[in-house]
Design a protein around this nucleic acid. Structure first.
Length: 420
RNA sequence: GUGGGCGUGGCUCAACGGUUAGAGCACUGGACUGUGACUCCGGGGGUUGGGGGUUCGAAUCCCCUCGUCCACCCCA
């Protein structure tokens, strides 16, 4: 039996890093006023088709959708924003002026697996609901950058853009359409086909012909209406004030329909083609489109697998993330009772203790201690038992000393803090 | 969904179409009856991803399939 395609286990060797990634995110986000929300993994299909957009790749060909026993159309969530917004409306969280939420968990998309892209993947998301101020955009991005710095992401690059609003985007789209229409022959097949659907995509295309053909294409940022332009200027201005470096990328396009105004993407090193480690933006119309009150919002999602790839490729993690292991060896039947009592005492004291009970030579136990990566091995044999002590051996130096039962915890604490 | 690379013990990899598919690491036993790492000696572990075909003979060549990686696409 094997896990199904695009699904994988996260084994202990990796999970310590995952927990670290999550807990640091929650710690940092909470200092910005975010609180956790736990969302269902399954939602009505309609929630996603309406929010993400009928014509998008996600909705069109990547969702795990099925009918339940009653015949209701359900979908394994492909992203977190729509469920968060649904919960926000349903639970009337809008009675508060601003709501800041974060969440984590698995998302599902039926895509071809490759490095940094899986069918079940994990995101950490955050949403600010109820504030249109450009300061929110800048501050939330700054929070994300700070978080990346804290967990040790280097060489992250922030790209930002503005997609305008329902007022100015259609006009831009028309103009772009005219521009592309005059150059249809130089566009790749793919882009010729999608010009009608989503002309913005052509700006993002990597094929030689499209890159050249769209070199002088009109840029959205130049076509923003006054309010959108001022908003965008506000965002970039605040980013500068917050010392956040960014690249203005007027070609950056989003694959979800709900985005308005600010959008951004952060890329990381050592990831190949799937190099976006976090992305997001503003979605000012989504809440009202889903039946809630007019509520401007901003949010982002982080790809956990990609983060963990970047972090493990740049090194430094592993042993340091888990606490030192103590290995307690009890030798000979008479020692057993005392050993169990001492182990219990150590665990109550917060130590991480593995145990082995052996007859005869401690050789095997020592070997096992070594394999486990024990920092200290504590031996209680019949000699020690008769003296009321244990032998404590520091594995790295092979130093060994007798410690009376009653002083064991104190001794360990003193030694550990001494180590620094 | 499209194109390409790669699948050999737990891991990293060898093996011109030709003996019983090897090595290092890992695992395990001993040298070493109260002490791990280092050293030495021994041991177990493979239907060469799976299925079919070509051939006297296939890990090796061909086809199908599954998986993985890369690019496209898409996105976190």
């Amino acid at each position: 039996m094997k896990a199904i395609r695009g699904f994988k286990d996260i084994l202990p060797a990796e999970s310590a890093l995952w927990r670290h990634i999550e807990s640091e995110a929650f710690r940092v986000f909470s200092t910005y006023g975010f609180s956790e929300i736990r969302l269902p993994i399954l939602e009505k299909t309609e929630l996603f088709s309406r929010s993400i957009g009928e014509g998008t790749d996600i909705v069109e060909k990547e969702m795990y959708s099925f009918k339940d026993r009653r015949g209701d159309g359900l979908t394994l969530r492909p992203e977190g924003t729509a469920p968060a917004v649904r919960a926000y409306i349903e639970n009337k969280l809008h009675v508060k002026p601003v709501t800041k939420l974060y969440y984590t968990g698995p998302m599902f998309r039926y895509e071809r697996p490759q490095k940094g892209r899986y069918r079940q993947f994990y995101q950490i998301g955050a949403e600010v609901l109820g504030d249109a101020d450009p300061k929110v955009d800048a501050e939330t991005i700054e929070m994300l950058i700070k978080y990346f710095r804290i967990i040790g992401i280097k060489d992250a690059v922030l790209n930002i853009n503005s997609l305008g609003c329902s007022g100015c985007r259609p006009g831009y789209k028309l103009e772009l359409l005219r521009f592309l229409g005059a150059r249809m022959d130089s566009l790749c097949e793919n882009c010729q086909r999608r010009v009608e659907e989503n002309p913005l995509r052509a700006l993002d295309c990597k094929s030689q012909g499209c890159v050249e053909a769209t070199e002088d294409a009109p840029s959205m940022v130049d076509q923003l209406c006054r309010p959108c332009f001022e908003h965008f200027e506000g965002v970039t201005g605040f980013l500068m004030q917050l010392d956040v470096n960014y690249v203005l990328n007027s070609r950056m396009v989003r694959g979800l329909d709900y985005y308005t105004r600010t959008t951004f993407e952060i890329t990381g090193p050592n990831l190949g083609a799937q190099n976006t480690i976090a992305a997001g933006g503003r979605y000012d119309k989504l809440v009202s489109e889903l039946g809630g009150p007019d509520t401007p919002c901003f949010g982002f999602a982080i790809g956990m697998e990609r983060l963990s790839i970047v972090l493990s490729s740049t090194g430094g993690f592993g042993a340091s993330l888990s606490s030192p292991i103590f290995f307690f060896v009890s030798m000979g039947k008479p020692t057993r009772k005392k050993a169990m009592a001492l182990v219990a005492e150590m665990r109550d004291g917060g130590f991480r203790v593995e145990t082995a009970y052996i007859e005869g030579s401690p050789k095997k136990a020592m070997k096992r201690a070594d394999k486990l990566g024990a920092v200290y091995t504590i031996i209680l044999g019949e000699d020690e038992l008769s003296k009321g002590v244990v032998s404590v051996k520091e594995m790295a130096t092979a130093d060994q000393s007798f410690v009376p039962y009653g002083e064991l915890i104190l001794w360990l604490n003193a030694t550990l803090t001494g180590m620094g």
